[in-house]
Amino acid sequence: MLKKTLDISSSPHIVKGRSTEYIMKNVVWALLPVVFFSIYSFGLNALLVIFTATFASVLTEHFLCKLSKKETTVNDYSAIITGLLLGLSLPPSFPLWMTFVGGVIGIALGKYIFGGLGYNVFNPALVARAVLQAAFPVAITTWHPAFLADRFTTVSESVFTFPFMEPHYDAISGATPLSAFKFDGVSTSTMELAFGQVSGSAGETCAIIIALGGIYLIARNMMSWRIPVAVLLSAFLLSGALYIFNNELYPSPVFMLLSGGLMLGAVFMATDMVSSPITPLGLWVYGAIIGILTIVIRVWGGLSEGVMYSILLANAISPHIDSVIKNRVYGTKRKIKAA
């Protein structure tokens, strides 16, 4: 005799079987080599900063879920990504208490007040970093040299700065390739940049490892290839044009691509799905805005680096990109229409 009751469900009855959680987990995996290289080049300092940022993000996410009596969303991995990205975008000897504050801000202000995962307008890690930049302008631009001999045995004094105190820096502090060029006119070799022999934020120094992480995610169809390509291509074209125009005044386009946070930003931050547009053309426009703005800020702005602000700005207009640039629906004429 056959069962009387059957379950009913809405079609389709089969699914691809890939979950949001699984995608997020893969992003974490793709970030791990970057984390390892960061620890390898900056030692215990980087380890502590990255760990603290991640710990603070996850803790905040969990706490806020409990506070609003929801099931915790820590296990969707998105808070870990925010934490890792924040840690990787900070100077390696950044004070831990400030790092912790950053992690809390990223989740609480960058994500939670918008309604949690899927609703955030900005990349949470960048929100945190922007707040830290405004609050601690000195600490966040004080760089630490890479590959110090004692990096696995000693921790910089600044890292353990007492909460609410300004850090003390050791005598040795490094300049990033970008600031060296912008403020002192010193350029760095391509090889050093590509393989991360330079100073900078904890996770931005090795362009090759970052690119490999991106290639992994793109190959697994977990990231839009259009964003990094659009960012890097537009940055390359604009800086290339400037370089051809005057190669004394402007750095080479290769230098522009490999230095600073452009690679990390293009591959891991601009590609945050939630805060980027959704249609192919929209992604191109979004990426190009980031690439061009970054170069404009770097060349003409007061700061040596412009990736963060460019991405935040592009995040802000991404909903508008979506409502203006739509796919041409099958069987219709192209419809570009202001919302």
Binding site: S19, T20, E21, I23, D76, G115, G116, L117, G118, Y119, S224, M273, V274, S276, I278, T279, L283, D322, K326, N327, R328, V329, Y330, G331
Partner: peptide
């Protein structure tokens, strides 16, 4: 278990009518 839409665009890349 459902999650919020993360705007991954997979659906946009799948829709044969090119809807969003």
């Amino acid at each position: 278990k459902t999650y919020p839409c993360i705007k991954c665009g997979a659906c946009v890349d799948a829709c044969p009518i090119l809807l969003n």
